[in-house]
Amino acid sequence: MTSYIARRLVVSLLVLLAISFCVFMLFYSGPSDPARVMCGKPCQPERLTQVKHFMGTDKNAFVQWLDFLKGLFVGRTYGTGAEAAHCSAPCFGFSFDQRQSVTNLIWSRLPVTASLALGGAAVSLLVGMTLGPLAAIFRGRWPDALVRGGSLFLVATPAYLLGLLGILLFGFQLNVVPVSGYVALTDSPVDWAWHLVLPWCVIGLINAAGYARFARNQMLDELGSDHLLAQRATGAPKRTVRRAARRGVWVPITTLFGLDLAMLLSGSIFTERVFSMHGIGDLLIGGVSSHDLGIVVGTALFGAALIIVGNLVVDIVQGSIDPRVRRG
């Protein structure tokens, strides 16, 4: 087990290395020159050279990538003297626009995104795993039709639309929940939750649609399986059999959930925008619109790392639920 995780971690690092290379090359070969943006208008050629040197973009892309990697492990300092900006390890890059290391930026935005992601994921799992198996038990009858119709509707609805509708209805018409902003958990847990209720529901419901459909089909497979028939043949009542069926649904759901959670933790662009929450998604969008490549590369890599770690965790959790995975 330990050796397996070690091996997977090494592979994960190599994958991250490759991803960082691709992301780096992609963004740095794009048309926008971060130094020119930084230099402002008008921009004298000498000033531009200075800025480029300061940002380290005067070297070729490959060397820049190596500098970036080095920064990840030992940190780096941009420029010298009074102007110098230090970015301590792990340095995911530096935002010259905001004169902060991307690591700090992500770190400062993480509570917002994590609050959104964990709550939203919990809602989606709760709703999906309640309604999906229920629909399967009532297959072909009205609860099933309702769940399937509802999930189809939700899957087809964009997050921002649902968010805006929620704001209109619950925020302005009924005036029951705040429509924007974020209050830190440490400041006021009640306000924190109160501000998050609506976005949780938006993220939760949209993801729940997928879970409900998936869980319904898995549950149908389980209910039709020989081992549950055999269990009934020993005299187990329907209630017991359904409980066993639900357990069978959890195994594949874990895979889905792990990856979804990783995806959500890397930032929900639309939801954060709609509810004016300054999370990682908002950071990324801000970085893109201000041509702040440090932020773009940093958040992209952060997302990739999350997905890879999520995958690893899923594999290990899967093994502990499903005994068949344990011994090859």
Binding site: M1, Y4, I5, I316, G319, V325, R327, G328
Partner: peptide
């Protein structure tokens, strides 16, 4: 050939 799994290889 054997296959690697989270819990050792076959």
């Amino acid at each position: 050939r054997g296959r690697a799994t989270p819990f050792g290889s076959s």
